[in-house]
Nucleic acid binder design. Structure first.
Length: 555
RNA sequence: GGUCCUUUAGUGGAACUGGUCAACACGUCUCCCUCUCAAGGAGAAGAAUAGGAGUUCGAGUCUCCUAAGGAUCACCA
């Protein structure tokens, strides 16, 4: 016992604080009885992953609905993989999704009394705990080199025993304190390992909030808790941080499930109460018929920024993620079409255990519905926000005449079944650019106009001219359309498709054919929103100009 | 390879503590509406609940075996 203390003092001579001091420094949170404390603990190694946003949504929801706390902590202990500035970016994106916490690491500053919330700044706290472990003989320095460990692993694999640093393979575990001190004083590099008391043969019963009761093997690995760079490993940081920050539920990806026994033993060794755990299913993707984890490298949709760039509304992405988080969410949404997600009650047992495939079609559907619901003014605002960042040309175009743009967005909005034309903001421009110059001219001239070849060019010209001459924009839609029918009739077209089909020989076509001529002249395409509204927005002068232009192209 | 997790139509998934034709949503297809498209309306197809055995009057639901998919086995998180 004396010896362990001696060793601890050799390793951490300057650490004088005790566990008790820390407990006083980070007292229990003053929260209602059932309040849950959750957290998001990303490492600054890149952009916000779609799967991460998923866990954030869940963690925040659980905290909010229990009137608890949701905070962020930056896990920047892997200095090698750290990407400059990505911590700030991560928080920026949380803000965009409106799920930024009010405690913890917030990018450019931090908030809260349980900090620091950046692990690299917590080195001394970890050392206090390690020193305590050291003094009780539950941790020890290990001088094995990477090469030695590699050799050990190969040996174990060859002999078909469980690989790792444990039991009789844990060489440095049996080093005497004097030997260890001698090597440290000699300047030999070392790490500190946890001394496990577990036995792989023993099973432990654990509870997961999502998966229920599980039977796992006890940990027997002497894992590294303190790296040679002076920073803790994930496992150890998890123990210390989630204890002193008083996390009540750890929400993390299911890839952590296998290391749960390690964490449980760690908590036990400190005689601390372990938090509850919820291991979330991972979002998958179908690749050549095989399911696999959404990968940062291969899948553009793994980065949440992809959806932002493509112009999916933030709430559509959240809505979709909630749909896969809780199976009853969609049902709830149908019953409460206008409610905020805050009113939905999330529960872990409504969560699927299997990793959901990312279903872009479903997202597109949700997005289309959502965009369809926006009013014309909301739509203009959203489009300004989007194009400002992702499509400057279009942004300028909108700003030039906002009223004009809003009118375009308003087409058939007030009808019983409003148009649902747009899935993403990014496709708006390509669908309406015919309303703008120079795009109109470009569209009209870049490829042959799709006029129906069954009709004589001269006939088309004549009809178009008469169409402009007789056009009265003051008419309502009904009247306007009847006059189009009158015009069509005059040139031998049927009033509608039914009539035409009944007597195909008595007509040369039907009113739709005439409408098509007008549509192509005004938009260059056979498909567009309701012509009546386009006419109203363009105004008589522009209509005349376009019709004449189309006629000139017919020669 | 060891360990653990998972497995219901193309996709997401419902089915409470075993009990009528295995919901619903997206997607697909057909028809209707309609000046085109989008939307909307009506309908259809699509699953012997991974396979097998067992328990039971009765199993997607309980038990066992097999298979497949996934995760994990670092001084990375």
């Amino acid at each position: 016992m004396e010896d362990y203390i001696k060793l601890a003092n050799v390793i951490f001579p300057n650490i004088t604080k005790t566990i008790d001091d820390l407990e006083k420094e980070y007292p229990s949170r003053n929260l209602p009885a059932n309040a849950e404390v959750t957290r998001f603990a990303p490492s600054p190694t890149g952009f916000l992953h779609t799967g991460s946003l998923f866990t954030v949504l869940v963690a925040k929801k659980v905290a909010d609905q229990s009137k608890g706390v949701f905070y962020t902590r930056l896990e920047d202990t892997d200095t090698k993989r750290e990407v400059e500035g990505s911590g700030e970016e991560l928080l920026e994106q949380l803000k965009i999704f409106n799920v930024a916490p009010n405690e913890g690491y917030l990018g450019n500053h931090e908030e809260g009394i349980y900090g620091p919330y950046k692990q690299s700044l917590r080195a001394d706290i970890y050392k206090v705990v390690i020193k305590d472990l050291l003094m009780r003989g539950r941790a020890y320095p290990c001088f094995c080199s990477q090469d030695e460990l590699k050799a050990l692993r190969e040996e174990q694999e060859k002999n078909k025993v469980i690989p790792g640093y444990y039991g009789k393979y844990a060489k440095c575990r049996n080093l005497t304190v004097d030997e260890a001190i001698k090597r440290i004083e000699n300047g030999d590099p070392y790490v500190i390992r946890f001394k496990s008391l577990g036995d792989h043969e023993n099973k432990i019963e654990v509870h997961d909030e999502i998966r229920g009761d599980l039977s796992l093997s006890q940990n027997d690995q002497d894992i590294v808790i303190y790296k040679s760079d002076g920073l803790p490993t994930y496992h150890f940081a998890h123990l210390v941080d989630d204890h002193f920050m008083h996390t009540t539920i750890v929400t993390r990806g299911e890839e952590w499930l296998p290391s749960l026994p390690i964490h449980l033993e760690l908590f036990e060794s400190m005689n601390w109460k372990a938090p509850k755990y919820a291991h979330l299913p991972v979002i998958m993707k179908l690749d050549n018929g095989n399911k696999r984890k959404l990968s940062k490298r291969k899948d553009s949709e793994a980065a949440i920024s992809y959806f932002l760039e493509d112009g999916y509304p933030v709430s559509a992405v959240k809505e979709y993620l909630y749909t896969i988080a809780n199976s009853n969410y969609e049902e709830w949404r149908m019953e409460h079409p206008d409610a905020s997600y805050d009113e939905f009650t999330f529960s872990f047992d409504k969560m699927s255990l299997d990793g959901a495939l990312f279903d872009l079609e479903k997202l597109r559907n949700i997005s289309k519905e959502l965009i369809g619901k926006y009013s014309k003014d909301e739509m203009t605002e959203e489009m300004k926000k989007y194009t400002k960042v992702y499509d400057r040309n279009f942004y300028e175009l909108i700003l030039k005449d906002e009223e004009y743009f809003t009118k375009i967005m308003d087409i058939e909005k007030d009808k019983p079944n409003p148009r649902k034309d747009y899935v993403t903001y990014s496709e708006v421009f390509s669908k309406i650019k015919f309303m703008y110059e120079p795009y109109y001219t470009e569209l009209m001239t870049s490829s042959p106009l799709p006029f129906n070849p069954n009709f004589d060019k001269e006939l088309i010209k004549k009809i178009l001219l008469e169409f402009v001459d007789t056009l009265d924009l003051n008419n309502d839609e009904q009247t306007w359309f009847s006059s189009l029918k009158t015009l069509a009739n005059k040139y031998g077209f049927a009033n509608n498709m039914k009539e035409f089909k009944k007597n195909p020989t008595s007509y040369i076509g039907q009113v739709g054919d005439v409408a098509e001529m007008v549509r192509i002249s005004l938009t260059s395409s056979k498909q567009s929103p309701n012509i009546y509204y386009i006419l109203k927005i363009l105004g008589i002068n522009e209509i005349r100009r376009r019709i004449n232009f189309a006629i000139s192209l017919l020669n």
